[in-house]
Amino acid sequence: MATPNLMVAVGDDDASVCRALKRLLHSVGISANTFSSGEAFLEMLSSATSSLPACLIVDFEMPRIDGLKLQRHLAPTGVPIIFVTATQDEAVREKALAQGAAAYLSKPFESAVLIRTVRMALGIPHLPEAL
């Protein structure tokens, strides 16, 4: 059961995390584009054929352009941002949420928690459970 025209962007500098999140989202009918850096995400957005994702799932710690910088860049668009990170700094969490993050999940997290979080961020009443 696919969710029509729903594209989520997933950013993490660990390719295995990108692959795992893409598979998880696909298992509930959500397409995902992945990127390994903030620069790659911004380049994707500047492409003539690219449109804004429905949601951004991003690691806080990425080289050069980190998650908070991407959040500030996307703030005017209203795209919900979900941070997934190993960063345990409470001040960072508070700053991300104060700047409008939809959620801040600490790695490792349960697949069902991410799916519920994406569903809430997108305002979708129901997504199937992950396979």
Rank of each mutant, 00 (worst) to 15 (best):
D13T: 10
A91H: 10
P53N: 09
M7T: 15
V28M: 08
C18E: 07
K22M: 09
E61I: 04
V28C: 10
L42I: 14
L56E: 13
P125C: 05
I124T: 01
L6H: 11
I82S: 11
P80H: 14
L74V: 11
K95N: 12
R19A: 10
F60C: 00
A32L: 00
P108L: 01
D66Y: 04
L68N: 02
V28N: 10
P76M: 13
P4D: 03
H126E: 09
D13N: 15
G67S: 04
L70K: 03
F35E: 02
A91K: 14
E90R: 15
T34G: 03
L45M: 12
E61L: 12
A101W: 04
F109I: 01
A86C: 11
T77W: 12
P63G: 06
S31R: 10
G78C: 13
P53D: 12
M7R: 09
D13E: 08
S16P: 03
G29N: 08
M1F: 02
M62P: 02
I30N: 08
M44I: 02
D66E: 04
Q71R: 10
A96W: 05
E43K: 12
S47V: 01
A101F: 01
S36F: 02
Y104H: 08
E94M: 14
V92C: 13
T77V: 10
K95P: 00
V28T: 12
P125G: 07
S111N: 15
Q88T: 12
G100S: 08
D66K: 04
E61N: 13
L68S: 01
A54T: 15
V28Q: 09
A96G: 13
F60N: 01
L56I: 07
E94Y: 05
L122M: 14
L105A: 00
P4G: 02
M44A: 11
E90I: 08
A75K: 14
A98I: 11
D13V: 07
R119H: 01
V17Y: 09
L74A: 14
A9L: 02
T117Q: 09
V8T: 08
E90K: 15
D89P: 06
M7S: 11
G100V: 03
L105D: 00
S111G: 14
S111E: 13
S27L: 10
F83A: 09
L114D: 07
L74P: 13
G67M: 04
P125V: 02
M62L: 01
S36D: 05
S37F: 06
R72N: 06
A96H: 11
D12P: 04
G78S: 14
S27K: 07
L42Q: 11
F35N: 03
A86F: 02
D66F: 05
L42V: 13
R119W: 00
P63L: 07
G38V: 03
G67N: 05
T49I: 07
H73P: 00
R119P: 00
F109K: 04
D59R: 02
M44Y: 15
S31D: 10
M44N: 10
